[in-house]
Design a protein around this nucleic acid. Structure first.
Length: 576
DNA sequence: GCCGTTTTCGGCCCGACTGTTTTCAGTCG
């Protein structure tokens, strides 16, 4: 998939450069769209091209004849003449400033033409020495705004893992909903879509006293800086890191505004295009036919006006959900409440802090039927992996507790290392005694392709699930080298489930790969990988990405009852 | 540059906000 990312970056840079050069804005938009599409495209374009040439590339939405040709040129020669030509006309470093709030192509061009600005350093200089301020169309306020934007950019340039923002947003919403003036409130944006990382956090509410609501908001505990405070909009930085915007809208427009601010941008553009064809206009204020408002209080209005079924936020990426809604083929997504247990946690036996009793109590309070206790295996020394003797002790304790428990049960499990030769870290006689076996790669050599190891592990009938299949960490590492398509294929053949590791920094598999796996009939298993009680809530993150991957209840093991699940594991072992 | 049950040409989502202007340009979401 490396080519997808590289090409996406090239087209994005070209879009910026062309915009700077004053090209037709729609051409700029076309490149930008192509970039976006490639970035999210679930298949390797190199593969698409190999299979069907430029023709096949053109079947990707947003890729036409010209861009397909450019992609083909790049894949064949490793170069793209048009790219080099365009980039050579602009100072590359300067354009990176376009990511800063308040700086756009026109401002950069102005500084470039009049002041000879060529680098970000040049730009900062003319910002400080007053020469930018004196140019036509500029002024003290604009300069001040750009300075603020730069400061903010340097401090918070990276996107935030969803799981870090999640508790904060819940807390803010909980605090706000208690105010007497607030009627309804909801987070929106990529947060509501459960995207694995989020940028700004947007919260929307209706109420009777906008100024009061905003005032309360910017004074919440945790606010370290107030960026804006008006009658209907407030913006604040929490904990020196999270920018949260709150908007108050009229009750009659709540649905339209929620739809609008939830996005994604591509999804909304697509909807508006359809609306236009029907002689309707959709905005954050409602659905309009001419001057007449025909809907907007509920989000469903917006979709209904276009002849569409309401689309769950997690699907709104313009990945085919609009077409699915049109034809009545939207998936019946797994619901957050349908999960009956967690399939991957660590107890005190290995490197967790929870006792087995803690886990039973936690399961009970969550209304779960089971928790899979999957401690590390013997070669995971760093994580206090269990040797066979300790493992047998653990199994015994679980059996004893289960007999006493009239409510939830624990599954005697293990997260077994896949050794360098693809064999497992316990012999089959031991694996046989477990309810649940999750196999995982935890150590690999740099540059090593671990695909053969995982494929071999899947041949073992005792393995039920492959843990965190790609090994990526959202904030810090790309993951090991692995052919995910081959994994999915073999998982499908052997009936092995793939994990959706719900730990906030993993979310592995991710949405795109989940959707691929689902389409091949592979079962998914959600596990939080929790090591303490404060991490089990992340199961919701796992369900969120499962929903983003179009999962229905029957695609996910965690929707099974306890007996059903045990039956599935035994069946899996027997039939492989 | 893309795209087509309104078009192979002529559209392309669209409104708010801000600041700099006296009617609009740039930027954002």
């Amino acid at each position: 998939m490396a080519a997808n990312k590289t090409l996406a970056q090239m087209f994005s840079k070209m879009a910026n450069a062309l915009e700077f050069l004053g090209e037709n804005p729609f051409k700029v938009g076309a490149y930008r769209k192509a970039s976006k599409v490639l970035e999210d495209y679930p298949e390797d374009v190199e593969e698409v091209y190999r299979r069907g040439g430029a023709e096949a590339l053109m079947r990707i939405p947003g890729i036409g004849e010209r861009i397909a040709k450019k992609i083909a040129e790049y894949l064949q020669t490793g170069k793209m003449r048009k790219y080099e030509e365009v980039i050579s006309q602009v100072p590359e470093g300067l354009l990176s400033l376009m990511e800063v709030q308040g700086i756009g192509p026109k401002t950069l061009k102005l500084a470039y033409d009049h002041l000879g600005v060529r680098t970000p350093e040049d730009f900062k200089r003319v910002l400080d020495d007053g020469s930018l301020e004196r140019l036509p169309g500029m002024g003290p306020k604009k300069v001040e705004n750009i300075k603020k934007g730069l400061e903010l950019f340097e401090k918070m340039s990276e996107r935030i893992p969803l799981g870090l923002a999640y508790p904060l947003v819940k807390e803010i919403v909980d605090a706000m909903v208690r105010l007497p003036w607030v009627e309804s409130i909801s987070a929106c944006g990529s947060f509501r879509r459960m995207k694995e990382t989020v940028g700004d956090l947007d919260i929307l509410c209706t109420g009777t006293n906008g100024p009061k609501i905003i005032e309360h908001f910017v004074n919440l505990p945790g606010v370290t800086r107030v960026l804006a405070q008006g009658d209907t909009k407030g913006s604040a930085i929490f904990q020196d890191r999270y920018q949260v915007d709150l908007r108050v809208v009229p009750r009659g427009a709540f649905g339209a505004a929620l739809q609008y601010f939830t996005g994604s941008k591509q999804h909304n553009i697509h909807l508006r295009t359809i609306a236009k064809g029907l002689g309707l206009k959709i905005s954050e204020y409602g659905v309009f036919r001419g001057e007449k408002k025909v809907g907007g209080e509920a989000e469903e209005d917006v979709y209904a006006a276009l002849g569409l079924l309401w689309i769950p936020p997690e699907l709104r990426e313009d990945w085919g959900e609009i077409e699915a809604s049109q034809s009545g083929r939207l998936p019946r997504l797994i619901d957050y409440k349908e999960v009956k247990g967690d399939l991957h946690v660590h107890s005190r036996y290995s490197d967790g802090t929870m006792t087995l009793e803690d886990l039973l109590r936690e399961a009970e309070s969550r209304g779960w039927q089971y928790i899979g206790v999957c401690d590390h295996s013997q070669s995971a020394k760093y994580a206090k992996g269990l040797d066979e003797k300790r493992l047998l002790e653990k199994i015994e304790e679980i059996r004893r507790l289960n007999q006493k428990s009239r409510g939830p049960k624990l599954l005697a499990g293990a997260e077994v290392d896949i050794l360098p030769d693809g064999s497992l870290d316990y012999p089959d006689e031991v694996l046989k005694k477990l309810d649940l076996v999750i196999a995982a790669i935890h150590s690999w050599k740099k540059e090593e392709d671990v695909t053969p190891r995982i494929l071999k592990a899947m041949e073992n009938p005792h393995v039920h699930i492959i843990a965190h299949p790609t090994g990526r960490l959202i904030s810090s590492r790309e993951g090991y080298r692995v052919d995910i398509d081959a994994l999915i294929e073999r998982a499908s053949e052997t009936g092995t489930a793939l994990e959706i590791n719900a730990y906030y920094d993993r979310l592995d598999l991710n949405d795109i790969n989940i959707r691929k796996a689902k389409s091949k009939g592979v079962k998914l298993a959600i596990g939080t990988d929790a090591h303490n009680l404060g991490q089990l809530w992340m199961i919701d993150l796992g369900v969120g990405v499962a929903r983003r991957g179009w999962c229905e209840p029957e695609d996910v093991l965690n929707t099974m009852d306890y007996e059903e699940l045990i039956r599935w594991t035994r069946e899996k072992t027997r039939s492989s």
